[in-house]
Amino acid sequence: MSAVERPRLRARLAVVYGAAAVLLGAVPVAIVGLGAWTGRSTEAVGAGPGGVDAGNTGSVLVAVGVGLVVVALVAAPIGWALAGRALRPLRELTSAASGASADRLPRHGELGRYAEFAALSATLADLYARLDGAYAAQRRFVADASHELRTPLTAQRALIQLTLTDPDADTTSMRAALADLLRNGEQQERLVAGLLALAQGQQGRVTTEPVDLAALVARALAARDPAPVMIHTDLEPAVVAEGDPTLLASLVGNLLDNAIRHNVDGGRVDVGTRRTPGLVDRVGAARHGTVLTISNTGPVVPADAVDRILTPFQRLTTPRTGTAGSGLGLAIVRAIAEAHGADLRVTPHPGGGLTVTVTFAAGGQVSSSERPASMRDH
């Protein structure tokens, strides 16, 4: 709470209303008083034909002063009441907001009834609706994450107990148990890394700088063993003018891992980067967007399951190649795409597999003499 006492809007409105009433009341009274003071006839303002003589001037001025005081005394409480009534919708909004919680958020009808506050009411209602969705998603995420983390921990505990209670355990069985524990630990490590990447993607961009998607794809491919699938690339320099290099590298890596893991032996993964058609800005410079496309063969994905596979911890099938994933890959991709304001489209193939297209909005400038250099089929 601020140490400086802030003025109250209601008090200021009451003063304004009261002052307006006094001024409006003072005008006719002042006209009468002016006529009496100058000794002129007040017939024009409603007095009798005889006017007001000089002997009555003092009493008229006193009456004027008393009248203004009475108007001020009456206007003050009326102004206070009118100001309170005018500010009632704000009090209703404040009351509704103060009573909000993660389990109960105000509805639109609880946020004021007056047309003048319709925009503010609608804005708050939309905010509360988004918060409600975020709270629900957070609760689901925590429940799913707890389940996913509990499963490998339970497996580790069972493996350790079986090994310790085995009277015939020897060096070989111990080594086998340790190898299983190591694999289990690696699975947990991948899960925690996925959770961290998802949290960073949902948090939004930390840094913004030009990022070449083609370079990110080349580095990601160099760090991976795609066997037993074939990787085909068609990479043009495609710069995201304002991107977070760490998050975009995570986006590319997760898409590649997903395309390789959910594939078939001898399958194919196609990776491409390109510019969108150039646009001309107000100073005549060409500007372009960028597109990343990754397509793979693999099991058939029903069209109505696309939203599901973009949700954390949702898996439609067991991976055909590579190791099991955490179920976070495409959820991470969606979070990072949203953080960059990019359009994410996931299209299933009738014969199996997916095409994932991420389109980033127009950004950096391109000179008319620049020509893309392509890298094909690595």
Rank of each mutant, 00 (worst) to 15 (best):
A227V: 11
L310D: 05
A305F: 10
H232L: 10
V239N: 00
A218Y: 00
R334H: 12
M230G: 10
R320S: 15
H288T: 12
R274E: 14
E338C: 08
V271E: 01
D307N: 13
H288C: 06
S326W: 06
G289C: 06
N258A: 10
P302K: 06
T293E: 11
P302E: 06
P277K: 10
A335V: 13
A337N: 03
T318L: 08
A331R: 12
D307Y: 15
L279G: 04
P226L: 15
H262V: 06
I336H: 10
T317A: 12
I332W: 07
L235I: 02
S250Y: 07
D270S: 05
L247H: 06
G325H: 06
L255K: 00
T311W: 14
A337Q: 08
T321P: 00
S326Q: 08
R315M: 10
G322K: 10
L316A: 04
L251Y: 13
L279Y: 04
G289S: 02
T323C: 01
G298N: 07
A218R: 13
D244N: 01
D225G: 15
H288F: 14
A218T: 11
T347W: 02
A223H: 08
A331K: 13
A222G: 02
G266N: 09
N258K: 08
A335S: 15
L344F: 15
R268W: 02
L292N: 03
R268V: 12
V333L: 10
P348T: 11
V271H: 04
P245D: 00
A238I: 01
T323E: 08
A238D: 00
L247K: 04
G351M: 05
A331T: 12
V252E: 00
N263R: 02
D270R: 09
P348L: 14
D307M: 14
F313I: 07
H262G: 02
D304Y: 14
G352L: 06
V269T: 09
V217G: 00
G322L: 15
A238G: 03
R274A: 12
D257N: 15
D343S: 12
P228N: 09
V301N: 03
P319T: 08
G284P: 04
D304K: 12
V269M: 03
N254F: 07
G352V: 08
L316T: 05
R261G: 15
A222V: 01
L255R: 02
I309P: 04
S295N: 04
A222Y: 02
M230A: 13
A241G: 00
L354D: 04
A305Y: 10
G325Q: 06
P237I: 01
D244I: 07
T233F: 01
H262P: 01
T233M: 00
P245H: 02
V269S: 06
L256V: 14
L279P: 01
L248K: 01
L310W: 09
L251S: 05
G352T: 03
F313T: 05
L328T: 14
A285M: 08
T293R: 14
S250V: 13
T290G: 05
L256M: 05
R315E: 09
